[in-house]
Write a protein that binds this DNA or RNA. Structure first.
Lengths: 210, 210
DNA sequence: TGAAATTACCCCATTCTGGGGGAGTGGAAT
DNA sequence: ATTCCACTCCCCCAGAATGGGGTAATTTCA
């Protein structure tokens, strides 16, 4: 490994017990130091410049500004900061929103607290610490549904359609006539029971056909 | 935990040394048994029914049928099978393709082999075992680019456009006039230096604006 | 053999799109 | 206070795109 320095951590967690437990736990590691701990996001953001932290351990359900908004704001103020969510919720929406906004990890509180230091180390090694169920959730989000009623060619056409392409350009890309694409799309609409591009794309994405 | 039974593993790996090393390693665990080991995907698929395995540990770079195609085929023949890729390549394309086709984990061979059993256990616990760099790759794929030249409203419009919606339906959804949407889109095209919907969507996705 | 997939063509009407121009309001920053 | 930007809405125009109707040849695979 290269040069390692003590990483500065900020905690944002409204539950006093948990916050103090984390602080105690992290203080036991020589690699990390808790430079500050807040019970709400607003204060954490106000002191962001002064704290010069490397990592924020963030709760999602917070009084006032919620964790997702906080992630957005913090990343915007300093993109170099690494954010790890620590939440009781495993709500799919929240997980993906947090990741989209820039979280580098997502831990659920039911995970053994002994893993916290390991997670921080994993983060420092260029990883993305996640609880077991979150990792599965994230990986599953990539999985395509193999039980699609659409033929391979129809899937191909629908994917191109979903990328905003016109019938003509899809035809060009697939080296067939524009009328052929029209036929495919008619059949796709029948199979998906829709009557428009937007509905077809929505249904196909919802069912993970594409 | 509920009832646990010994999980049946199949290896698909063309390198004899690695294949045998894995076999030896896994045999040392009481929780797993290697029911078969193949040097190519075709044979593994031919014996899929007889092997009745729970988990396949798959290489990606194989002679003949490659690992991605093999994943597709195996998942199609038996969706219950769990697949974990073990590869030297960390190629982004390959990782995402493997996950889209149904892989539940992705390990790089440079990861300590001692972690292999841990990864299998993680899989059995409902997780998605990934090497450090793969986890980061996967999580990073969600991250949006905050340095977008587009305004919040423009991003909103572009997202709806990218979902296949027409100007009119976007207007309805945002409770504004269709002409307003047209104005936004004109400005989006100017900012992104494009002249069509498809180009705008492509550029926005490539740059992770949406 | 028979069903499904892939390819291609015709007609029609409506909507959509992209480009040109202009303009008013409000907020935020200088 | 003024300027810049975001957001809103309006006009004109021509060509492209879309959705629905129908038909049909070839191939592929079970």
């Amino acid at each position: 490994m290269g040069t390692t320095s003590i990483k500065r951590i900020v905690l944002v967690e409204d539950d006093n017990i948990i916050r103090e437990a984390f602080q105690t736990l992290i203080s036991q590691s020589a690699d990390f130091i808790v430079v500050n701990a807040y019970s709400n996001a607003e204060e954490a953001i106000k002191n962001l410049k002064e704290d010069v932290a490397d990592i924020y351990l963030m709760d999602i359900e917070l009084p006032g500004m919620n964790g997702i908004e906080a992630i957005t704001k913090i990343k915007q103020l300093n993109p170099k900061i690494q954010l790890v969510v620590v939440s009781v919720y495993e709500n799919d929406e929240l997980v993906f929103k947090a990741l989209c906004e820039g979280a580098s990890g997502y831990l659920t509180k039911n995970a053994p607290t002994s893993k916290l230091i390991d997670s921080l180390k994993e983060l420092e090694n260029g990883g993305a610490p996640m609880s077991t169920s979150i990792a599965r959730l994230v990986v599953s989000s990539f999985h395509k549904n193999k039980q699609s009623p659409l033929s391979p060619r129809e899937l191909e056409v629908l994917e191109l359609l979903a990328s905003g392409k016109s019938y003509s350009s899809i035809a060009d890309l697939l080296f067939v006539d524009k009328e052929t694409i029209r036929s495919h799309i008619k059949n796709i609409y029948i199979k998906l029971e829709v009557h428009s591009k937007a509905d077809a794309i929505e249904k196909a994405k919802k069912n993970k056909f594409i």
